[in-house]
Amino acid sequence: MTAPVELGSQLITLMAALMLVVQLFMVVQQMLLTNIRLFAIQSLFLAGIATVIGYAHHATHVYVLAVLTLLGKVLLLPRLLTRLVRRINIIQEIEPLLNAPTSMLLCGGLTLLGYLVARPFTSLERLGNNTLAIAMTLVLTGFFLMFNRRKAITQVLALLTVENGVMLAAVALTTYGMPLVVELGIFFDVMVAVMISGILVYRIRESFASMDTSKLTQLKG
């Protein structure tokens, strides 16, 4: 019976690593639509990890989580965001705060910090080694992505990657995942958050005629 557990932890580590790679692509990527698709892939990997854990520990509610992530973050949200982008029909993301090479370097640094922070807790993970470190890195790079980009939609996406990072930590750290009621609460909160930001983005688009958040600077000190 050890083989599947061994296989499971390798699978989890692989998928977590792939999530990190997708994240780095998003940092570099300029095109809005590809960004959304990258986010969908990342969520897919997260769902994968959840299913593996659910299978390994026979925890039924982790399966629920996997299905929810699959439905919500892989299918529903990306379609909603793409429809939004198409209606506002801006494709190209203009020059971000830091250009690609410097942001990549910074993400490298953040990964290092993620590992440093997560190092004392590696003993905690049952399956897949240092997924916690990856989770912390996802959160930090998501944070960095947020203030690196100007487009409102990318900021929402960055927020969602932070969310993914947190869910990864939850899944990796806790042996059987969090109690179901908490999972549901978190999931729906994220959904509603994205809906609302979608509405706001639409309204901003209407009144500011642009998605560029750097224009939102009237409220000075």
Binding site: M146, A152, Q155, L159, A193, I196, S197, L200, R203, I204, S207, F208, T213, L216, Q218, L219
Partner: peptide, 14 residues
Amino acid sequence: NRKTSLEAAWKYVI
């Protein structure tokens, strides 16, 4: 639905 309140709401949400 003023410009400034939208901006404030956006910042608040993010």
